[in-house]
């Protein structure tokens, strides 16, 4: 039960960290629970489907279907985060002003919450499909119902607890800086996901590594440690990154930062700025 719980915990933790950042970034939005909830629900459903068709995906594209699938959904999440972050850069100030004056939830309006639904769904789907395959293996090897159910309960409760801790920690950021802080967190999250996508494309030999191990900080913070994994999920930390991963990380971070800067002019009329962001 403990072994099962530990694996489930690791996977749930990764998804929970991403969901926490999304929850913080959508602070004070009416009905955001529905969006995040739908994202989790879609992700769980998708995870079961992906696990059920794992052999089909693995055999697709001459054996690199798994890598292609992972890279595509990761890059889709990157685009969605970029869209939302750039939108927020041009509306964040109004939002915190509104929240301060009204002291309550604001309407989502034209805010691209559907983009964040996809980000949540992708996070849950990726980690969830591993959990489903693992549990299927456990069940097929004759593990008892109690051991499996107990393991799931332990892992989910543990992972979600850490997610909540991060969420409430983020809520401690003063409102003045809150949305720019969560926006920068989203930027780093997107850059990290892009770097992971590059990793899959290198593994499939679709992209050159441009150096397998540009630096090695394993001694400082190992990828295997819980903190290493957490930082890997949150900001894309990698103790031994390949050159191409660094390229993807830098290009994504720069593109989003530029987008935030170019569109993030509070003087721009709201209607036009949101129409542009939606394009």
């Amino acid at each position: 039960m403990l072994g099962t719980g530990l694996l489930v915990f690791r996977e749930v933790l990764e998804a929970a960290l991403i969901v926490s950042i999304v929850c913080a970034a959508t602070r004070g939005v009416n009905g955001r629970g529905r969006w995040v909830g739908s994202g989790i629900g879609t992700g769980v459903l998708g995870a079961i489907l992906v696990a059920a068709f794992a052999n089909v995906i693995a055999a697709a594209a001459s054996g690199i279907g798994q890598e292609l699938f992972n890279a595509i959904i990761l890059l889709a999440a990157v685009v969605m985060i970029a869209w939302h972050a750039i939108w927020m850069a041009s509306h964040g100030k109004e939002l915190s002003a509104q929240m301060k004056s009204v002291g309550s939830a604001v309407q989502a309006g034209s805010r691209p919450l559907s983009a964040l639904l996809i980000v949540v769904a992708v996070a849950v789907l990726r980690e969830g499909s591993e959990v489903v395959l693992f549990l299927y293996g456990q069940a097929a090897s004759g593990a008892g119902v109690v051991a499996i159910a107990g393991g799931i309960a332990l892992g989910v409760v543990g992972g979600v607890a850490v997610g909540f801790a991060l969420y409430f920690g983020l809520l401690g950021i003063p409102l003045r800086y809150f949305f720019s802080a969560t926006n920068w967190l989203m930027l780093l999250l997107a850059a990290g996901l892009a770097s992971q996508a590059a990793g899959f494309l290198i593994q499939a030999d679709l992209l050159p590594a441009l150096g397998n191990r540009i630096w090695d900080t394993s001694a400082l913070l190992s990828n295997a440690s819980l903190m290493g994994k957490t930082m890997h999920t949150l900001i894309g930390y990698d103790a031994q990154p390949a050159g191409m991963q660094i390229v993807f990380y830098a290009v994504t971070a720069t593109a989003i930062a530029l987008g935030m800067k170019l569109w993030g002019n509070p003087a721009a009329p709201r209607r036009h700025a949101s129409a542009t962001a939606a394009n």
Partner: peptide, 15 residues
């Protein structure tokens, strides 16, 4: 049963 091949040193993971 399924397995996941993983290596931190090689930076690889695949089901």
């Amino acid at each position: 049963t399924p397995e996941e091949f993983e290596s931190h040193e090689l930076n690889r993971e695949k089901i």
